[in-house]
C-alpha cells in the first residue's frame, strides 16, 4: 500500500475543504472496500480524509413519516433499527444478506453506495480495465464473466454494482442527501449510480467535492409488504448473482402498488419499470409475474459465462412476487 497523509475531519466543512484542496484525496468511512482497494493499489489516494467523527450517524423520523438514515450510520445499526425493521423490511433483509456481521459493523450507509465493483479484472492491476484505467480495454467482455452484467452494459464495461442495500433503496425510491460547498441538494437513488456508457470510470454522479450526509426513505406504508430475495453461490457471505427487492400491495385481488429492483445484473441497481407497468392494476397471477419478468429482461444480453442470469433473474422476480402474494393471502 502506498503511503498517504491522514486527515481527521472535525466537521463537514473541514471534510469538504480538505477534499476541495486535494483532488487526489479520498474520504474514508468504514473503509471495508477502500482499504482493500488501496492494499491492491487499485485506489491510490495520497490523502485519506477520515470523516468518522462527523455527526452523521443518526437515524431519525422525518416529518412526513419517512426515515432519514445518517451517512455514517453503520449498516448493522441501520438494518436493526426498529423502524427500519417494521416499516422497510426489504431494506433490513438486503443489508443483512450482504457481507458479514463484522463488515456490516464497519460499513457505513454512504460507503455502501460508493463501494466499487468486485469485477476480478478491476481488482487485478495487471489486467486491462476501462473502469480502473480509461481506454485500456475490458478484460471481462472476452474473459471469465460469470458474475457480470446482463442489462445496461456497454462495449467499455460489463461490471455490476455489488451493493444489496442500494437495490432495496431503489425499490423504496430513496433520495441521497448531498452536501457541497454550494449547499445541500438531493439526488434520487435512480440518478445516483450510472450506467457505464463511455465513462465506466464514473460509478456515480457524486462530485469529488461532495459529501453524502444522509439517505432519505419516503413514507411508504405498503413497504411493510416487501422482500429481498438474493440468489448466490452459497447461502451466506457472498455477492448476489441475481437479487430482487420487491414491494407489493395487493387488495381486492388486484396489484395496487408494486416496486421491483434487481441487483447483480447491471452497473447500477436496476429499477424494473417495465415490469412494474405490466403488474400495476393486474391480478396477481403466476402468468402475469412471468410476463412482467420477460418484459424487463427483454433487452438483456448474456456473455459467455453469465447468460444463465437472464433466466435466473426472471425466475427470481416471479418467486419474489409469488412469495409476497402468498403472504397477502395467508
Amino acid at each position: 500500500m502506498r503511503a498517504f497523509t491522514y486527515t481527521r475531519a472535525a466537521d463537514t466543512s473541514a471534510a469538504l475543504g480538505a477534499a476541495i484542496q486535494n483532488p487526489e484525496a479520498k474520504f474514508i468511512g468504514g473503509g471495508t472496500n477502500l482499504v482493500d482497494l488501496m492494499r491492491e493499489e487499485v485506489e491510490r489516494p495520497n490523502e485519506v480524509i477520515d470523516i468518522n467523527r462527523l455527526p452523521l450517524s443518526q437515524i431519525e423520523e422525518l416529518p412526513d413519516g419517512g426515515l432519514r438514515l445518517g451517512a455514517l450510520a453503520r449498516n448493522s445499526h441501520t438494518a436493526n433499527h426498529l423502524l427500519v425493521r417494521q416499516r422497510y423490511p426489504v431494506l433490513t433483509q438486503a443489508i443483512l444478506s450482504a457481507a458479514s456481521p463484522q463488515l456490516r459493523n464497519l460499513a457505513t450507509n454512504a460507503g455502501n453506495l460508493l463501494q466499487r465493483t468486485r469485477c476480478y479484472y478491476f481488482y487485478d492491476i495487471t489486467a486491462p480495465c476501462n473502469k480502473r484505467q480509461p481506454g485500456s480495454g475490458c478484460a471481462a467482455i472476452g474473459g471469465f464473466n460469470r458474475i457480470h452484467a446482463i442489462l445496461g452494459t456497454s462495449e467499455q464495461c460489463i461490471a455490476t454494482h455489488p451493493s444489496d442495500m442500494a437495490v432495496a433503496l431503489a425499490a423504496l425510491d430513496a433520495t441521497v442527501q448531498v452536501q457541497s460547498a454550494n449547499g445541500q441538494h438531493s439526488i434520487p437513488i435512480e440518478a445516483f449510480h450510472r450506467l457505464p456508457g463511455d465513462t465506466p470510470e464514473q460509478d456515480t454522479n457524486l462530485g469529488h467535492d461532495e459529501l453524502i450526509t444522509a439517505i432519505d426513505l419516503p413514507a411508504t406504508p405498503f413497504a411493510t409488504s416487501s422482500l429481498y430475495l438474493k440468489v448466490r453461490d452459497r447461502p451466506s457471505f457472498a455477492f448476489a448473482l441475481v437479487s430482487v427487492a420487491a414491494v407489493l400491495k395487493v387488495a381486492d385481488s388486484q396489484i395496487k402498488n408494486v416496486r421491483l429492483a434487481l441487483g447483480g445484473v447491471a452497473h447500477k441497481p436496476w429499477r424494473a419499470h417495465a415490469a412494474e407497468e405490466i403488474l400495476t392494476g393486474a391480478q396477481p397471477t403466476a402468468e402475469i409475474f412471468r410476463r412482467a419478468a420477460e418484459a424487463e429482461l427483454q433487452a438483456a444480453i448474456g456473455y459467455e459465462h453469465n447468460a444463465f442470469k437472464i433466466e435466473l433473474a426472471k425466475r427470481t422476480i416471479v418467486r419474489a412476487l409469488t412469495t409476497l402474494t402468498e403472504r397477502h393471502l395467508a
Binding site: I28, G31, T32, D36, R39, S100
Partner: peptide
C-alpha cells in the same frame, strides 16, 4: 486473508466485532 474474507482478525471495537485488517489503526 488480510482482505476481510476470513474473520481471523476479528476484534471488538467499543464492544462490536470488526475485521481489524480492513481499518487503519489511527482511526
Amino acid at each position: 486473508c488480510n482482505q476481510g474474507a476470513c474473520g481471523a482478525c476479528t476484534v471488538l471495537v467499543d464492544g462490536e466485532r470488526v475485521n481489524s485488517c480492513l481499518t487503519f489503526a489511527v482511526m
